[in-house]
């Protein structure tokens, strides 16, 4: 009976491990940083966020970058390779410093949170389609920054 349970547990584990490995394959296999430049320019220029992406791309171990900017703010979210997540906090700080130095006119916000990554990805798509007015973009950015600062 006990042996059976142990086997059951082991079986579940095997399934879990194989599943999680599968899910991650596309991310690690490519080995390159996943990002794309925003081309739409009718509402507000995204050239700053494109520059930021280029800069971040040179960093080692970053798997995906998303960035959006208004004329005052620059919000960046990125993901790094899993075994580097121990240094996540210091990497984030480092990137933040680098961005503030590179774009002193902009208020830079950097996040590595999964939720922010998802939201920023959506926002990028919207901006790319050119559907967002300047005001809407500002509002969305404000919400994002607020979400980032939320602690408890």
């Amino acid at each position: 009976m006990k042996a059976f349970r142990l086997m059951l547990a082991l079986g579940i584990i095997c399934i879990l491990i194989s599943c999680s490995a599968d899910n991650n394959k596309p991310n690690t296999q490519s080995g390159e940083t996943e990002f794309k430049k925003i081309t739409a320019s009718d509402t507000s220029s995204q050239s700053i966020s494109n520059q930021a992406k280029e800069k971040l791309k040179k960093r080692e171990g970053i798997t995906s970058i998303y960035a959006v900017n208004t004329d005052k703010k620059l919000v960046i979210a990125f993901e790094i390779k899993h075994h580097k997540r121990f240094q996540l906090a210091s990497t984030r700080k480092d990137v933040h410093k680098q961005m503030e130095k590179a774009f002193p006119d902009y208020e830079a916000e950097v996040s590595t949170d999964k939720r922010i990554v998802l939201d920023l990805k959506e926002l990028e798509k919207k901006v790319d389609k050119g559907k967002l007015s300047k005001k809407q973009l500002k509002k969305e950015m404000k919400q994002l920054v607020q979400l980032m600062k939320d602690k408890t």
Binding site: L16, C19, H82
Partner: peptide, 8 residues
């Protein structure tokens, strides 16, 4: 990946 490490 995070699921695996959460487990371990």
């Amino acid at each position: 990946m995070i699921f695996f490490w959460a487990f371990v």
